[in-house]
Design a binder for these strands. Structure first.
Length: 272
DNA sequence: CTTTGCACCTGTTGGC
DNA sequence: TGCCAACAGGTGCAAA
């Protein structure tokens, strides 16, 4: 499910219960995630205290005394707190047991997610070293986007979804940010002016920030309760609205295919 | 270095 | 009701 807002909402939802706790055990029922879960993970984690729960891009970082447990939710992953008698369902692959009684359960039907261990500084992990700036940090703004787009002939939507340019912009919010910035997803990246890059960077930030705020209010307890993230309760300006009227101008929203993903845009508000 | 397409896997939806 | 194809929130990787 997760786009960046869901990952960040999950991080906030588990941080307090995890931080300061000691790991009693990790139970891996199915290690066949995107990469195999390390067979000795239980031996590694047992007894370690959790220092904090961080995030880089869509990777959750469970920072422990000797290293970091890296969790990615992939396309269909979720984390929730359960009790010892909660029935284990089909795709509940992993339980993390804490000495404070909490049990964190990892579910992931498609198994595109990952659970990895890294000793020492986590940012040295190969998956994290080449990532671009965080979209909500000072390291990302219009001028950074402008510079990154100069040599790119490919479509701007593909560019903002490229983790080397900026992390955490998934398909939904790439579409939404482009709509609010008034830029067609098919525009070549290098054709954007500095001003357009400024608008787009600002809209990426706004759209993600708003979604996190909404997730925080409407999904405050989804981690330990429902686990049904916000996509179903949220409404978007263009995403998933093909053939419907643009909420701004009434034109018909169009759907196209870019990089094997669906793009949605308003041909009037986002001229080519 | 940029760009493109594939791969991983299961569940849901829509057409016939 | 059944069957099959297409599609779904991600992203690393090989190949061009």
């Amino acid at each position: 499910m997760p786009e960046l807002p869901e990952v960040e909402t999950t991080r906030r939802g588990i941080q307090n219960q995890l931080t300061g706790a000691r790991i009693s055990a990790i139970v891996v029922r199915n290690p066949a995630l995107r990469w195999p879960v390390a067979p000795d993970l239980d031996a590694i984690l047992r007894g370690q205290r959790i220092l904090d729960v961080g995030r880089r891009a869509k990777y959750l970082l469970i920072e422990c005394e000797q290293g970091t447990l890296i969790i990615h939710l992939g396309m269909s992953g979720s984390l929730r707190f359960v009790t010892a008698d909660t029935p284990i369902e089909k795709h509940d692959h992993i339980d993390l047991l804490l000495d404070n009684g909490h049990i964190l359960r990892y579910r992931d039907p498609r198994r595109f997610g990952a659970v990895l261990w890294q000793y020492g500084p986590v940012l040295l992990h190969p998956l994290l070293t080449k990532l671009g700036p965080e979209p909500l940090s000072d390291a990302f703004d219009g001028s950074v986007l402008f510079d990154a787009t100069r040599k790119r002939g490919s479509a701007i939507k593909l560019t903002i979804m490229d983790n080397h340019v900026v992390v955490g912009v998934g398909n939904i919010y790439a579409n939404e940010a482009l709509f609010h910035a008034g830029i067609a997803p098919t525009r070549s990246a290098r054709s954007l002016t500095a001003e357009e890059c400024g608008r787009l960077a600002a809209e990426i930030r706004t759209v993600l920030t708003r979604a996190i705020a909404a997730g925080g209010s409407t999904l405050r307890d989804f981690v330990d309760a429902i686990g049904k993230p916000g996509y179903f309760q949220q409404s978007y300006f263009v995403y998933g609205r093909s053939e419907q009227a643009c909420l701004r101008c009434g034109s018909v929203i169009r759907q196209i295919r870019q990089g094997q993903r669906s793009s949605f845009f308003c041909p009037h508000c986002q001229p080519c």
